[in-house]
Simulated scan of single mutants.
Amino acid sequence: MSHYTLLKKENKELQTFYQKYCITPPPHADWAAQYQGTRITAYQSGKILFQGKNAEQEYYRWQKEEKEEKEPSSSSLSQLSLIGSDEVGNGSYFGPLVVVAAYVTKEDIPWLTTLEVADSKTLTDEKMKKIAPQLKEKLPYQALIVSPKKYNAIQPRYNAVKMKVALHNQALLLLEKRIEKENQPLDALLIDQFTSEKNYQQYVKEEKEQPHHPVLMRVKGEQEHLAVAAASIIARTLFLEQLEQLGVPYHLTLPSGAGEKVDQVGVELCRRYGVDTLEKVAKLHFKNTQKIKAKL
């Protein structure tokens, strides 16, 4: 189902236009209407969602008259209460793909700063292992872990970007519902950008349900808000835990990444337990698979 989103805090003009077509609004919405095959929902957050066969037409009816409200600037964004999401494992041959969404209020920011929370790529694994338990205890979060076996099963139908879009959407949606159920403040959702906004919108339309708060994308999102940084740390430590557990049955330490060391361990694994073992511990579409097989 096609959908378009408009950010418009003042929507009295739209409400007046659709007044004759109003229907019972969903939770957290001010009003809703059904007009010529399109459902229009105005949420309390300022987001107006157009869904249905004529969604594009209705969206542009109002988008042309008034530009969307500007997204928060980087300086203001850092002080909002929001959910941030990040993924780990996408570039590693061994191990799962992990996506985590974490909720951080503006009141949490001084505490996170004291913990020296930052992007997981800038911290050592040991540092993150010390920080992560505190984050997981205090911050609401949602983790989605796709094991190598499951990854290999769905990868032919989901390219890497489509898979990450689906996972981020699901993690954000599940956590958004929890936060709203607890009546906690929530201004927006922020994703550490891994693809263009056009690609994201293309793939997210295929999902059955999406969050209704504004979804923002930022390159180096962990520098824009500590919710993304917290999510990246939790995701990294979960990835490392899963990676370690995957190697236990084979008495091997599986390295992260996709370099020469990975190929060496892959060859050793196959020689001991057979090539079919790779399906359980690695992402088979990586070029490493062919390199490993060529060395056997």
Rank of each mutant, 00 (worst) to 15 (best):
Q134N: 05
Q134V: 05
L135P: 09
K136L: 11
K136V: 10
E137P: 05
K138G: 01
K138E: 01
K138L: 13
K138T: 06
P140C: 08
P140Y: 13
Y141G: 00
Y141K: 03
Y141E: 04
Q142L: 09
Q142V: 00
A143N: 09
A143C: 11
I145S: 14
I145M: 09
V146F: 12
S147I: 00
S147F: 04
P148T: 07
P148V: 03
P148A: 05
P148R: 05
K149C: 04
K150C: 03
K150W: 02
K150N: 04
Y151V: 05
Y151Q: 01
Y151S: 01
N152G: 09
N152C: 12
I154Y: 03
I154L: 09
Q155A: 07
Q155F: 13
P156E: 01
P156F: 08
R157T: 13
R157N: 15
R157H: 12
R157D: 06
N159L: 10
N159H: 06
A160Y: 07
K162I: 10
M163E: 13
M163C: 15
K164A: 06
K164W: 09
K164F: 09
V165T: 11
V165N: 02
A166T: 07
A166Y: 10
A166P: 05
A166C: 02
A166M: 02
L167M: 11
H168M: 13
H168Y: 10
H168L: 15
N169H: 04
N169G: 09
N169D: 02
Q170G: 06
Q170C: 11
Q170M: 08
L173F: 15
L173H: 08
L173W: 12
L173Q: 15
L174K: 14
L174N: 12
L175S: 12
E176Y: 08
E176A: 15
E176T: 08
K177L: 11
K177E: 14
R178Q: 15
R178N: 06
R178G: 01
R178V: 08
I179D: 00
I179P: 00
I179H: 00
E180L: 15
E180M: 09
E180K: 15
K181A: 08
K181L: 02
K181D: 14
K181N: 11
E182P: 00
E182R: 11
E182A: 13
N183G: 07
N183C: 09
P185K: 12
P185V: 14
L186Y: 03
L186G: 06
